[in-house]
Computed example of a mutant assay.
Amino acid sequence: MNLQQTYSNLIKQEAKRLGFESCGISKASFLEEEASNLESWLKSGYQGEMSYLENYFDKRLDPRLLVDNAKSVISLSFNYFPEHVQNKNSYKIAKYAYGEDYHHVLKSKLKELSFFIQNEIGEVNGRAFVDSAPVMERAWAQKSGLGWRGKNSLLIQKNKGSFFFLAELIVDVALEYDNSFETNHCGTCTKCIDACPTEAILSNNTVDGSKCISYFTIELKEELPSIMKGKFEDWMFGCDICQDVCPWNRFSKQHTEKQFLPQSNLLQMEKQEWEEITESVFKKVFKKSAVKRTKFLGLQRNISFLSK
């Protein structure tokens, strides 16, 4: 076994110890195929008001512009599928936001992995990314052999489904690289396309982000468009519809991360309680949650749109 293989094996073992579901490694290079896809997606206006997606075009496609002398992209997945969900008489929150904000939880674990790499390999420079920088995480996850991109654009893993977060470490050391995941196992299934109430999932394996319920309830800061009235199916923060109907998610297993356990009383709250929620209750229930991103007034706006 050569040194690169040894280092890669050690990194994957430590990633598993830290709770990551999967770990794959690919060579840091320009994402040529993604370049035309991203340009076309942006030109179609599918980003809506998410103008930040238009920034750093070159950096999104080339990790070597994010980390000097980058050699490897370490892609990781972390399960967040919960044991219990909200009661049926409730406005809904995407499952990823039940517990503490994943940005902080995973960033902490990535720091531990970085320290481990420093200790085992020596002077290694790199950066950790958790859905907060211009990194095309699903493309890198696929190149690293973690899974394929479904028709809903999410990464799907065989026998694991899609209820997981993605994260990356981009480092300036050469490692053993995994083979890209080339087989798409969605076949002729169109359940996610058929189930999307706002028709955000297009037939050409593209998602119109400007029509997604998650976009409306989280990203859009303006008034919600009246044309979407009655189409949100009680989702007040994010949406899991395309994942809930995906046949591959029958393999989802409950996570074991204590920090992702639901906030106090979250699962028991009913519609009337949400409609009457005060800012102090909001701060208590979502103290460390990603739901804080929409702020109290944003959640109020969403609930009002659903209830009236």
Results as ranks from 00 to 15, higher is better:
residue 1 M to K: 06
residue 2 N to P: 13
residue 9 N to G: 06
residue 20 F to G: 02
residue 21 E to G: 08
residue 22 S to Q: 11
residue 24 G to N: 11
residue 30 F to Y: 13
residue 30 F to H: 11
residue 34 E to F: 08
residue 36 S to Q: 05
residue 37 N to A: 12
residue 51 S to H: 13
residue 54 E to A: 11
residue 54 E to L: 12
residue 55 N to D: 15
residue 55 N to S: 14
residue 71 K to V: 01
residue 72 S to A: 13
residue 75 S to D: 01
residue 85 V to K: 11
residue 86 Q to L: 07
residue 86 Q to T: 05
residue 87 N to E: 06
residue 91 Y to F: 15
residue 99 G to R: 04
residue 103 H to K: 02
residue 106 L to T: 02
residue 106 L to A: 03
residue 111 K to I: 14
residue 113 L to Y: 10
residue 114 S to G: 07
residue 118 Q to Y: 15
residue 120 E to S: 08
residue 122 G to C: 13
residue 123 E to C: 14
residue 133 A to W: 01
residue 136 M to D: 12
residue 138 R to E: 03
residue 140 W to Q: 09
residue 144 S to A: 15
residue 146 L to N: 12
residue 152 N to H: 12
residue 157 Q to M: 06
residue 159 N to R: 15
residue 159 N to L: 05
residue 163 F to E: 00
residue 180 S to G: 04
residue 186 C to L: 11
residue 186 C to S: 11
residue 187 G to H: 06
residue 202 L to P: 08
residue 205 N to S: 09
residue 207 V to E: 14
residue 209 G to Q: 01
residue 212 C to M: 03
residue 214 S to K: 01
residue 220 L to R: 08
residue 221 K to Y: 00
residue 222 E to Q: 15
residue 230 G to S: 09
residue 230 G to A: 07
residue 232 F to I: 06
residue 233 E to A: 13
residue 235 W to R: 00
residue 236 M to K: 07
residue 237 F to N: 01
residue 238 G to L: 05
residue 239 C to P: 05
residue 239 C to M: 06
residue 242 C to T: 02
residue 246 C to D: 04
residue 246 C to S: 06
residue 248 W to S: 09
residue 251 F to H: 13
residue 259 Q to V: 02
residue 263 Q to F: 04
residue 264 S to E: 14
residue 264 S to K: 09
residue 264 S to T: 10
residue 269 M to D: 00
residue 271 K to F: 02
residue 275 E to M: 14
residue 276 E to K: 12
residue 281 V to W: 00
residue 281 V to M: 05
residue 285 V to P: 00
residue 290 A to G: 10
residue 293 R to N: 09
residue 294 T to E: 04
residue 296 F to W: 01
residue 298 G to D: 04
residue 306 L to Y: 09
